[in-house]
Design a protein around this nucleic acid. Structure first.
Lengths: 227, 227
DNA sequence: ATAATTGTTGAGTCATCGCTCAAGAAAGAC
DNA sequence: GTCTTTCTTGAGCGATGACTCAACAATTAT
């Protein structure tokens, strides 16, 4: 929810409008803009930045890396995205709306039972995390684990997203207990913590070279703990 | 096993003898050294470096951070430990010999059954990872997840340690199946991957604020998947 | 046309990075 | 004592970090 916020004391002129206040228009309305048009595709540049942050993490990705991968000069980057931190936040927002970043939310919304939802989440994680079409693992889990103290806010941002996911898991499991899908002595918070632990572990395993088959076996074993 | 190795092309003069070729003498033999004695306690300095790397990770820990925490000047650090990379490798070696870093190896050596060993490992991880007497989680798991490309070797070092642990797990489980402790259709590699996944996830959870009680419940749930 | 607006460019800012080195200080050897 | 060895010190190295800015280019508005 938090917006841009400059690191230095400059009077905040960056991040003109981007994709945040899209209101009710989901796609770019063909309104002709005023000045010189951008020479690069904003979505493509954002995707390139996403790949870099996903693979290297926030701190290890330099602005020089970013401008090279995005095919633009620093001035364009700062004019279009604010600063490095704002760019990262936009990357995280977009990742959360992408299929790869939202598969858990989608499964929770679509599956009628809690078991069905979490079984699907674990099995899809096993397929998605090692998928070679993108960097291994989950960006939210692994892109800001080692950060310098001055970038602690970035670490906190992702940590809060992870813990919010845990609370969503817990709420769904609480509902399942009320529905009688889980026994009355089941512990929603404990089960949510366990499932979150397995998911985060699977992301790390994928980054360490585990294959989709490896993770699929892990997912099936993990599901045997279901009450 | 690899020793020092300079990053730049200088003819390698660093890391005089440190603690590596300790031969058969486990403690420092009281042999009086020749020149000016060091003005700092090497073990204490190493412990301070360990805390920093453990908390921030390799890249996010600067040499300036290190010298401040260790109470020495850069020249002393480089004379005593080689370069930043060698210092980190020594930190990792010492961590692997410490109680906190070796609890899994100890449990595997001491427990007669595989189940006993892995149940103890999960329960001890639940107690150790969030212990406030040191940084949260496991240094080997979390100290080199986001590293710049030029430090990829550090990432590879810890990754290899993690994968070696997985192979140790797998060997112990293979033995358990041969002993009849596990059913003939049990899959040692899959089970090792699952247990490693849970352990790595618990480390991340501890870094995200999970308490010892939280992780203890996770450990018990994880053990329910045992064949 | 001219003005206003927006984007790009390339050179450049200051801070910090890992790291080095000559000079001096503290010990044992002689 | 003097010599040799080892460690500490403080200044400083080149490279890279995130970031800025004046000048120019490309578009719409009038």
């Amino acid at each position: 929810m938090s917006e841009a916020q400059q690191t230095t004391g400059t009077p905040a002129k960056a991040a003109p409008e981007g994709a945040a206040p899209a209101d009710t228009a989901p796609d770019t309305p063909p309104r002709p803009r005023r000045g010189r048009p951008p020479a690069f595709d904003r979505a493509e540049a954002l995707a390139a930045a996403t790949r870099l942050f996903w693979q290297l993490g926030y701190d290890a990705t330099s602005v020089s890396d970013l401008t090279t991968a995005m095919g633009i000069r620093p001035g364009s980057l700062y004019a279009a995205f604010g600063d490095k931190r704002s760019l990262f936040e936009e990357v995280v927002r977009q990742y959360g709306r992408s299929p790869v970043g939202a598969f858990a939310t989608v499964a929770l919304a679509e599956e009628p039972t809690a078991y069905g939802a979490f079984a699907r989440i674990l099995r899809e994680a096993a397929a998605i995390y090692p998928d070679p079409s993108h960097p291994a693992g989950c960006l939210v889990i692994s892109a800001a684990t080692n950060v310098a103290p001055q970038d602690a806010g970035v670490q906190e941002l992702l940590r809060e997203l992870r813990n919010a996911n845990l609370r969503t898991f817990e709420a769904r499991l609480h509902q399942a207990r009320q529905d009688g899908e889980l026994p009355p002595d089941a512990d929603p918070k404990a089960l949510a913590g366990y499932l979150g632990t397995v998911i985060q572990g699977m992301s790390q395993q994928a980054r360490d070279g585990a294959t989709a088959a490896d993770l699929a076996r892990t997912a099936e074993l993990a599901l045997r703990a279901w009450p």
